[in-house]
Write a protein that binds this DNA or RNA. Structure first.
Lengths: 332, 332
DNA sequence: TCGAATTATTGAATCGATTTAACGAAGTGT
DNA sequence: ACACTTCGTTAAATCGATTCAATAATTCGA
C-alpha cells in the first residue's frame, strides 16, 4: 500500500480513505489513487484489513455432505441469498464426520467469520454457543439444536413422513420398511415416527425399521439386501427410504435381484433431488425445497448479522411436498 | 492472548512459543499455558497470525459447478489429498460464471492463500500469473491453460472421445450427434475432435455437432429436442453427450418422446458420475477418475508449496475408461 | 564454589491496513 | 482584513500474534 501511496503522491491514509471512505477524499486524488491501484495491481491484505477492522465479512458454511445433491442445492440457495450483500461464502464439507466438522468450526472461529450456517453432525452445541458469545451469528440449516438459542430453517420432517406413508397406505401397501439411519439423526427419527403414527392412524399395516450407518446409496443397497434375505412372506411391500440416495441404492439392489418395482415392492424417497426423476424407475419422493431453505437461511443470517440485538429466535419450517412417480404409482 | 498469558503467569511471547515452538518452552510452563488456553477457550485470531506470519496455510479451490457430482467428487479427492498436511480447504463455486470466478480469485488473493486449485472458466490466465508471481502456487484441475507455466491434472479427453466413438461405431452406429457446449471449452472441443477423427479413421459414418450453451440436464433436453425435430431419416442413431448430466437430459427427452434407447438411438455420456449407473436406462459412459484427479492435484500443489523453486511444470494426464451399460449395449 | 555454557523467558519491534486527532489550506461572513 | 468554518490530507496509534535480541535462570565442569 505504501507503493500505491508513493505512486499517487499521497499518504497511505489517503489510499485507505479512497478505498473505504470515498466521500472523504477529493475526486481528483481519488482518481489518482485508483489509477495507481490499477497500475500496480494492488490487492489489499485481508489479514491486515481484518485485524484492524475486527470483523471478517465472510460467512462460513459447514455442509453435511457435498456428495448429496440435496446439500449442494441448499448451498446454492445460500450463495444466492448472500449475493445480495456481496458477502463471500466459504464452504466446508464435514462429510458427516464430527472431527472434520470440528476442524472447520475451528477454522471459522479463527477467521472470526461474521456468520455461520451449519448442519451439525456431532455434539456441536457448546461450540456454537461459544461462537455466538463471541459475536458470530449462527443459523442452523436442516437441523434444530438448542431450540431456544439458535434460529433455524428446516423442513417439516414429520409432515413429510406422514405424506409418504399415507401415500403408500392409500396404494394398499401394508408392510412398510423404513431404511435409513443412524437413528441419532432427528431427521431419521421424525420421519420414522411419522410413518408409524400414520400407520397407527390408518388402523392397519406395520412399519419395520431397517437401520443403516449412513445415508448414501451404499447404505441403501445394504439395507435392501437385508430385506431380500427374508422369506417371502416376511418381505415388505413398500420401502420408505430415509433420502433419495438411499432410495436409489435400494432400487439398484432390488433391480439386481429382479424384484419388480413398484409391483412387488414400492419405493419412496425423500428430498426429490434432480436425479430422482431420471432414475431407472423414476422415484416417488417427498420434495424438500432445498434452494429456498438455503436462501431463507442466508436471509435470516444477514438479519442477525446486521442487528445482533435482535435476540429473537426464529424457526422457519418449510413444507415438503409429495411428488408421485413410477416407483410407487406404476407406469402411466 | 494477553489474558491467557496473565492466567498462566507468563508473557504473551511465551504463550506464542508454547503454541508454535513447543520445544522452546519447558514442559511445566507449556502445560500451564495449555491449561490456561483450555480454561479460557482461547482461539487465536488468524488475521493477526497471518499478518505476522505472512502466509496463510489454507488452500483455495474454485469449483466449476457444485451441481455436477463430477466436480464434488474431485473436491472430495482434494480434501483427502490435503488431509495429510492438515491444510484447510476453502471451497468456492463459480457455477461456470466468470464474474463469480473472479470474485473468488479476489477473495483468495486478498487472503494470500498458499495454494490455489482452479478449473478456470473465463479469461483467467493473467490473474493466475499474478497470483503465482505473488507467491501463490497454482495447479489447474481438469483444464490446461498457460501450458508452459502451470502444472495441471487432466484426463485425456481425446482418448475418451475416441473410446466413446469407437464403441458406438463398433455397435454399427453410423450417424452420431455430439451434444454439448459451449465449444469454447477445451473439453468439448477435444472430445468432439476425437469423435470426428474416430469416424474418419473408421471410414464411414458422420458426426454432427449440436451446440448447447451449458452442460447440464436442461441443455441435454434442449439438444435432444432439436434432434427430435428432424425428419426421421435425418435423425442420428447415436448421441454422444458432452457429460453425464447432458446425457441424462437427453435420455429424459428421448424417453418422453417414446424413442427407444438404445434400439433407436444409443446414448453415451462422459464422467461416469454415480448417478449414471442408476439412470432410467443405465448410462454407458467414459469414466473419469475424479477423486484420483483431486488427490493428484492436491499432492502436486503441496509439492509446489513446499518447494516453490521447483519451477518444473508437470502435466499429469489420467486415463479415461469406457464403462458399458444398457444405454448403448441393450439389456443383458 | 565460581564462571561458562546452556536453556527459558521476556520486552520491544513488526506485519499492513484503518482510524483518530491534528494540521494546513481554502472559503465565508462581517 | 480578521476570526471562523469547512474540507482534504497526514502522522501516529492501533488491531493481536510472532519473532528477535537481550536478559534471567539453570546446569555443568573444574
Amino acid at each position: 500500500m505504501r507503493d500505491v501511496a508513493r505512486l499517487a503522491g499521497v499518504s497511505p491514509a489517503t489510499v485507505s480513505n479512497a478505498m473505504n471512505h470515498p466521500d472523504k477524499v477529493s475526486p481528483a486524488t481519488r482518481d489518482r489513487v485508483h489509477a495507481a491501484i490499477a497500475e500496480l495491481g494492488f490487492v489489499r491484505n485481508s489479514a491486515a484489513h481484518q485485524l484492524r477492522r475486527g470483523t471478517n465479512r465472510a460467512v462460513g458454511m459447514v455442509v453435511l455432505d457435498v456428495a448429496n445433491p440435496f446439500f449442494t442445492d441448499v448451498a446454492r440457495g445460500v450463495e444466492e441469498g448472500l449475493a445480495a450483500e456481496g458477502r463471500p461464502l466459504i464452504l466446508g464439507n464435514s462429510g458427516q464426520d464430527a472431527a472434520r466438522e470440528t476442524a472447520y468450526l475451528d477454522l471459522f472461529e479463527e477467521q472470526r467469520v461474521s456468520g455461520l450456517l451449519v448442519t451439525p453432525v456431532g455434539d456441536t452445541l457448546p461450540r456454537l454457543r461459544r461462537l455466538r458469545d463471541r459475536g458470530t451469528s449462527v443459523v442452523l440449516v436442516d437441523r434444530r439444536v438448542g431450540v431456544r438459542e439458535f434460529s433455524s430453517v428446516t423442513v417439516d420432517d414429520r409432515r413429510g413422513g406422514r405424506l409418504a406413508t399415507e401415500h403408500l397406505l392409500a396404494l394398499g401397501r401394508t408392510s412398510v420398511a423404513f431404511v435409513g439411519g443412524p437413528p441419532r439423526l432427528n431427521q431419521v427419527r421424525h420421519r420414522l415416527e411419522a410413518a408409524r403414527a400414520a400407520v397407527d392412524a390408518h388402523g392397519s399395516g406395520s412399519v419395520r425399521y431397517v437401520e443403516t450407518a449412513s445415508m448414501d446409496a451404499a447404505a441403501g443397497r445394504a439395507g435392501a439386501e437385508r430385506l431380500l434375505a427374508l422369506d417371502a412372506p416376511e418381505r415388505p411391500d413398500a420401502i420408505f427410504a430415509g433420502n433419495d440416495l438411499v432410495a436409489l441404492g435400494v432400487l439398484q439392489a432390488l433391480t439386481r435381484a429382479r424384484v419388480a418395482v413398484p409391483d412387488d415392492i414400492a419405493i419412496i424417497g425423500f428430498d426429490d433431488i434432480d436425479f430422482a426423476a431420471s432414475a431407472a424407475i423414476p422415484l416417488t419422493s417427498v420434495r424438500q425445497p432445498a434452494a429456498e431453505m438455503g436462501r431463507t437461511a442466508a436471509t435470516r443470517l444477514l438479519e442477525i448479522i446486521e442487528d445482533p440485538s435482535t435476540s429473537s429466535v426464529v424457526h422457519t419450517v418449510l413444507e415438503p411436498e409429495l411428488v408421485v412417480r413410477e416407483s410407487t404409482a406404476g407406469p402411466g
